[in-house]
Simulated assay, not measured.
Amino acid sequence: MILNESGYFSDELMAFVLTCLFCEAISRDEFNAWCAQASSLNAAPAFLYDLMDFVPCWEHEKNDEYALYGIAVRRGFEPFDMPVTPSEALDSLKASPNIELLFGQVFDFIKL
């Protein structure tokens, strides 16, 4: 769930964003752009301060994480120490269209 019942970002969203960063599906500059965009929303300030006090957890299947590597490969990135081959990552992305959809919603300023 992107926003929780109160209209604030969920820890699951933050975990997804961090996983995208760690899988190199997004660059550090894109992560910073997302943070700037998120901080401009009314619901974001409390969430951003709360980040200091919790560990985000994104409930997902291992194939979903591999799909994020697929996004990185498709975007021309070469993630360091990727646990699957580029071909397997792209296959995982093809098998998980919901991850591409979620990525597009969260990072609407990035064209895939």
Rank of each mutant, 00 (worst) to 15 (best):
H60T: 02
E88W: 07
L18C: 13
S40G: 06
F80K: 15
F77L: 06
E59H: 04
L112Y: 14
F22N: 13
Y66P: 09
A44E: 10
S92K: 00
P56R: 08
E88F: 11
G104H: 01
F16P: 02
F77E: 14
S87N: 12
Q37H: 10
P97T: 07
T85E: 12
D108T: 11
N32L: 10
I110E: 09
G104D: 11
E61N: 02
L93H: 03
T19A: 13
L51Y: 02
P97E: 01
V106A: 01
D53T: 15
A38R: 05
F31Y: 10
F47Y: 05
P86C: 06
E65A: 13
M14A: 10
R75V: 11
A44H: 05
A15V: 01
A46C: 00
A67K: 05
A43E: 08
W34C: 05
Y8H: 10
S40T: 03
L21M: 11
I26F: 01
M82D: 03
I71F: 13
A44Q: 00
S40E: 08
L112K: 13
F47T: 04
S10E: 00
F16I: 00
A89L: 10
A43F: 12
F109K: 01
P86N: 10
S96V: 05
F109S: 02
A38W: 02
H60L: 02
M1V: 12
A67N: 07
S27Y: 02
R28M: 11
V55I: 14
F22L: 12
D11T: 14
P56A: 02
L101W: 12
R28E: 12
D50W: 10
F107D: 04
Y69G: 01
L3M: 05
L3I: 05
P83G: 14
A95E: 01
F16T: 07
N42H: 10
I26K: 14
R75P: 13
Q105W: 10
F80H: 14
L48I: 12
Q37C: 06
E78P: 03
P45F: 03
C35Q: 12
P45L: 04
A44T: 06
F77Y: 15
L21A: 12
F107R: 01
V106E: 06
A72R: 13
F22Y: 11
A25P: 07
C35L: 04
A95N: 08
D81K: 13
E12F: 01
P45A: 03
D108L: 08
V55A: 12
R74F: 05
G104P: 01
C23F: 06
W58T: 02
E30M: 00
V55T: 15
I71S: 07
A43L: 03
A46E: 12
F22V: 08
A25K: 10
D108I: 00
F107L: 00
Y66K: 07
F107W: 09
L13P: 11
F54R: 02
R74K: 15
P45C: 02
D50I: 00
Y49A: 07
A33S: 13
S92P: 07
A95K: 13
A25I: 08
Q105N: 14
R74T: 15
P86M: 04
E12H: 09
H60M: 06
A43R: 14
F47G: 00
G70H: 10
A43K: 10
C35S: 07
A72H: 08
F22P: 00
V73A: 04
A89C: 04
P79C: 05
A36L: 04
D91W: 07
D91P: 00
P97L: 05
L68G: 04
